[in-house]
Amino acid sequence: MSRRILVLAGTGEAKELCARLRDADIDAVASLAGATRTPDALAVTTRHGGFGGADAFADYLAQEDIQAVVDATHPFASAMSLRSAEVCRTRGVGYLQLLRPAWASQKGDQWTLIDQEEDAARIIGPRSTVFLATGRQTLERFVNLQGRRVICRQIDPPTKPFPFEGGEYLIGRPPFTVLDETILFRQLGVDWLVVKNAGGTASRSKLDAARALKLRVAMINRPPQPEAPKVATVQEAFEWVKAL
């Protein structure tokens, strides 16, 4: 039987895992959904764009003789993870979710936990300067923040105007240091930082900067994840693949 592995990518962990699979001479292919127009290159053959639904994903697994799937997508790509886990279960394909631990508040943090983007307006005052570190895909869900100064940072230049008045784009490609973020938040006069609880170390610098500046943070809780085998590190995922 083929040992071909499909890595559902889009995170730093996926990039590292692909490099380790290549170095171990394990047959692997990666898939990027296309959320970023110019993503970093991966070490294995990479397909771009969505699969087109559960049936199309199942067909792809069969056509490419995929033995196992490592889901290393973003923790907020839950619809993709739930679908992928279910398709793999029904088709008898191995499935593992590589899910990094969520962030936990530390002494000095001023977090308010919310469950969805629309809840941010409930806790953020009308004359606040709000920094959205949540990406462009869910931007329209913040429309009820209209009346505040809203700054949305994204990797790619915008292709259409800001979806509501009072908003502006800021283009930046990570990583950002704590010093970078501290200087930026001071220059912009940020009152509130809105963040998805993505976890990991690469993007934690904004939270460390917010703590140093005593900024308030609206932290969006993670959506439900599939009931499936999970690991928290690239090493654990690599060992799982090797044990197949």
Rank of each mutant, 00 (worst) to 15 (best):
L32S: 06
Y60P: 14
I114N: 03
S2C: 06
L188V: 14
C88H: 05
Q146C: 10
T45L: 02
A30Y: 01
S84L: 14
R127K: 02
Y95P: 01
D27L: 06
F57T: 11
T233R: 06
G34S: 09
L244K: 08
G34D: 06
A79Y: 11
I123F: 14
K160Q: 11
Q97P: 01
Q110N: 10
P175E: 15
V143E: 01
V190F: 11
R222V: 12
A120G: 07
R149D: 12
G125R: 14
E227Y: 07
E165Q: 14
A232C: 09
L98S: 03
A41D: 07
S31N: 01
V93F: 13
T159R: 13
F57V: 10
G199T: 03
I151G: 03
P163V: 07
H74V: 04
V150Q: 06
P126W: 08
A232V: 10
A41P: 03
T112L: 15
D156Y: 08
A228C: 08
T134D: 00
G135V: 04
T134K: 02
R222I: 11
R4E: 05
R89M: 13
T45P: 08
T36R: 07
V241Q: 07
L99S: 01
R222K: 12
N197P: 14
G167Q: 03
D156F: 09
V194P: 00
D115E: 15
E236K: 06
S105A: 15
V190P: 05
T201A: 15
R148T: 05
L179I: 10
T73Q: 04
G49A: 05
T45Q: 03
D65I: 12
G135H: 04
A54P: 15
D191T: 02
A35Q: 14
V150L: 09
A120W: 05
T138E: 07
R3F: 03
T134A: 01
L98M: 11
D191Y: 01
F76E: 01
T129L: 11
H74R: 07
T129I: 13
F185S: 03
S78N: 15
N197M: 14
S128N: 11
P224S: 14
L42E: 02
Q235Y: 05
K230Q: 12
A79I: 14
P101K: 11
G12N: 06
R136T: 13
I171H: 04
L179D: 15
R186E: 15
T73A: 04
F142M: 00
E118N: 04
L82E: 15
L42G: 00
V195P: 00
F185R: 05
H74M: 09
Q97G: 06
D23V: 00
W192I: 09
G52P: 04
L179H: 12
Q137S: 02
F176C: 00
W103F: 00
C88E: 10
F142W: 00
